[in-house]
Amino acid sequence: MPHDGHDHVSPSGHPYRPDQDAPLTHWQVMEIAVRELLVEKGIATAEEIQAQIDSMDRRSPALGAKVVARAWSDEDFKARLLADGSAACREMGIEVDALKLIVVENTEDVHNLVVCTLCSCYPRNVLGLPPDWYKQRAYRTRAVREPRTVLKEFGVELPGTTALRVHDSTADMRYLVLPKRPDGAEGWSEEQLAEIVSRDSMIGVAVPQI
C-alpha cells in the first residue's frame, strides 16, 4: 500500500470509498484513461458523465412498482400498459428512452419469467441496473432449460396447471412482468400497493406477498 499505516485514508485526509481502496486493476486504469481522453477531446464533459451516473442511480425498482400499482388500480391504464409499455410509462413521466418496453401479465393461468440469454438486457429504465444473478450464466441457461426448477429455488412454486412463459430480452426490446395482484389487497391505495411490488416480482422470480 502506498500509505503505510494510513491504508484507508486518501491524501486529502478523507477515507476512500470502500470500493476504491483495493489494488488498481488494468481495466480500471483503462476506464480512467478513456474517460479522461473523452473529456480532453471534447467528446464528453465530466459533468455529463456524472449526470448520466446520477440519472441511472435515480432509476430503481420503485419506478416499476409505481407502474404496476397504477395498472392494478386503473383498468384503462392497464390496457394501455399492455398495449404499449413505453407509451404508458411516458404517460407517468417515466422515460424509457428508445427502448421498446413490453409488459407481460401474470394471471391465474399464466406466469411470465424474464431472462436475457445473451447477456444482460433488462428494463433498466424502470428497474435500475440488473442484479448480478440476472447476468450469471447459471440463470441465463437454466431460466430457459428448467425454469420451474429455477423458480422453485427462488421460492416460487407454480401449480402444474399454470402455463410458464419465458421471455428472452434483446437490446432493443425489454420485458417487464406485471405481477398478479394478490388477494387481500382490496381497497389499497396505489402507494400501499407499490410497496408490495418487489424488483424480483417484476422479473417473474417472485410473487407479491401481503
Partner: peptide, 22 residues
Amino acid sequence: PGPPVDRDEHDYALWEKRVDAL
C-alpha cells in the same frame, strides 16, 4: 443447465457505473 443461481448481489462500484455511463 448449470449450478444453482448464486443470488448474492453487489452494489456497483463507481468505476463500473462510469463504464456504463461511457
